[in-house]
Amino acid sequence: MAKSALSLSIPLLFLLLLSLNSEGPLKHADAKGNSTWCVAKPSSSDAELTANINFSCDQLKDCKVIQEGGPCFLPNTLMHHASVVMNLYYKQMGQNSWNCDFISSALITFTDPKGPLKHANAKGNRSWCVAKPSSSDAELTANINFSCDQLKDCKLIQEGGQCFLPNTLIHHASVVMNLYYKQMGQNSWNCDFISSALITLTDPSNDCCTYA
């Protein structure tokens, strides 16, 4: 994971131009001065999440927070643990967008992953709605059922659909939650899902699945 979050040896100007002009998912040059957090992409593989945990913990020197008995151990999932330490690394390094890249497996969000949605409106911004990394299987299933009931069509996340892979609840939930959010007018209250969702500034799309 030595090259995670873009190599810091590259000149700062190049990093800024890359983040602004790249076709990749992370397009925000700097999030300093904003209340932002860094979390793992819902489509991240177990291998990516494990690598992000290992890199972040190596840099932080202390990851007791996600170890058994720590305040952020539960839920005991790779998605949650990775997001916790990735965000700690992001904050410690100065909250620059290149500190929340992790080889394109991370998102910058302006919703606190630990708290309720407090932003009144995200209209006019490039924003997406995804499930919180700490969401339970029950919450994710409920969000899929609700969104699909409203959308009337969820073939996108069914087997053979463009966004079926990775076949995980958090990815499927995020895809249809975002579709609902967009269809309803991109108001922040359409991305609450009983406080189990985040509004992100980074496009969650992956190689196979384009989020609306």
Rank of each mutant, 00 (worst) to 15 (best):
D203P: 08
Q95I: 07
M86W: 01
D62G: 03
C100H: 00
N34G: 13
L26R: 04
P25F: 01
V130W: 04
N54A: 13
T109Q: 12
N167P: 12
G124W: 13
N143K: 06
L140S: 07
Y180E: 10
A82M: 09
N52E: 12
W98S: 08
L13N: 14
L18H: 11
A106N: 02
Q67Y: 09
A138I: 14
L15E: 15
Q186P: 03
P113R: 05
V176F: 04
C72L: 00
A197T: 06
S135C: 02
G115M: 05
K155P: 01
M177T: 08
C72R: 04
L8G: 10
F193H: 04
L169G: 07
E139S: 08
L26I: 11
I103L: 12
G70Y: 02
G161P: 09
V84S: 05
N54I: 00
V130L: 05
L74K: 11
L156S: 12
C209D: 15
K41Q: 13
S56F: 06
V65D: 13
G24C: 11
Y90K: 07
N187A: 08
C38F: 01
T50K: 12
P11W: 14
L198H: 06
C38M: 05
S195Y: 09
F55C: 04
C129P: 15
V175F: 03
L78H: 05
N190I: 02
D46H: 00
